[in-house]
């Protein structure tokens, strides 16, 4: 299926182009723990491709495979036309990688970190300053400060500058927004948006569902499996049932009552509200009367516009449950 790119119409021309990352049936286990199973996806040139999933879903393992730091047990994966097994050098030269923990030397200053990465990648800060100007200029006033003394948001900007300094054509960012406050997160996504103008393809992971809408396409990943790959709009559109939002002073009582209602298909707390989907065939007793009978008189019901998270919840609750005694995959230590 041709994914929609209505956000960026000029990218229609990319559809015939070679994918930047092409993965087919990737599998990876650590001992008896299965970290990834049958992962297939394509990242197209110039797009921001997001992997959305909780801790332990296998995001970091997958990124380490893309960056040639780990070898898959099964499947094929090509990055910029290079095979991760044979041509790892070709890949390593052309990607910028920002691991989950910001890869910075805390005892070096901001400027020393940047210069170090520039030298290691055989370039200079001056040569590619244009690319990082927008990002680096925000932390340049602190260039003589040790990286360890920066705030989370500033570390994140420095790490991004370091990953970009050699002008990679593919940028791989593993949970760049984890542990950073809401303002810095928003700024970060703005920076990524600007980088697209430089024709840099971005693969990014995040555990935060709300960041999905910032990507051109997203893959929902959980328990080492990809659930769906599509544009955020298409994923949201996959939610086909009418959605209701219900509000009451006591969410606890409200949810208990809603769960008892025979016509209820799913109930999820959702911020101030409770999101409710109903079955196709409803019982005779209408919901408001049912709630009243259960002591909830202040309930307000409204139709709601489903968001991407509603669709994720729908997809995931239909999925197989976490098997018992499954050892959790620790993303940090493979």
């Amino acid at each position: 299926m041709e994914p929609s790119r209505r956000a960026c119409p000029e990218k229609q021309s990319f559809s015939h182009m070679q994918p930047v990352v092409q993965a087919l049936g990737i599998g990876k286990s650590f001992g008896t723990t299965v970290a990834l199973r049958d992962i297939s996806f394509e990242v197209l040139p110039g797009e921001v491709f997001g992997f959305i999933g909780p801790d332990g879903a296998g995001k970091t393992t997958l990124f380490r495979i893309i960056t040639t730091l780990l070898l898959p047990d099964a499947g094929e994966i090509q990055v910029m036309g290079f095979d991760v097994r044979r041509d790892y050098r070709g890949i390593r030269k052309n990607i910028g990688y920002m691991p989950g923990r910001f890869s910075l030397y805390m005892d070096l200053t901001v400027e020393e970190n940047l210069r170090f990465y520039a030298t290691v990648f055989g370039t200079t800060v001056e040569e590619n300053y244009d690319l990082i100007r927008d990002i680096y200029s925000q932390i340049e006033p602190f260039k003589h400060r040790m990286a360890g003394k920066l705030s989370g948001g500033m570390k994140q900007k420095l790490a991004l500058s370091c990953a970009l300094i050699h002008k990679p054509s593919l940028l791989i960012l593993d949970e760049p927004t984890t542990g950073v406050d809401a303002v810095s997160r928003a700024e970060f996504w703005e920076m990524l948006k600007k980088l697209k103008a430089h024709n840099i393809t971005i693969v990014v992971s995040t555990p935060y569902m709300d960041e999905a809408t910032r990507c051109d396409r997203v893959a929902l990943i959980q328990n080492g499996r990809i659930f769906s790959v599509d544009t955020p709009d298409h994923i949201t559109a996959g939610f086909s049932r009418p959605l209701l939002q219900v509000k009451s002073a006591s969410k606890h009582l409200l949810m208990n009552a809603l769960k008892k209602y025979p016509g209820t298909l799913s109930v999820w707390p959702f911020g101030e509200y409770v999101h409710l989907t109903l079955r196709d065939v409803l019982p005779e007793e209408p919901l408001p009367r049912f709630l009243e009978r259960h002591g909830i008189r202040d309930a307000t019901l409204m139709e709601a516009k489903p968001g991407i998270e509603d669709r994720f919840l729908e997809l995931m609750s239909g999925a197989e449950p976490v098997p018992e005694y499954r050892k959790e995959v620790n993303d940090d230590q493979p």
Partner: peptide, 13 residues
């Protein structure tokens, strides 16, 4: 431990 090795390995060094 600090994760910088990951980037060094991925670099042309």
């Amino acid at each position: 431990e600090f994760g910088t090795m990951e980037v060094l390995l991925v670099s042309p060094l």
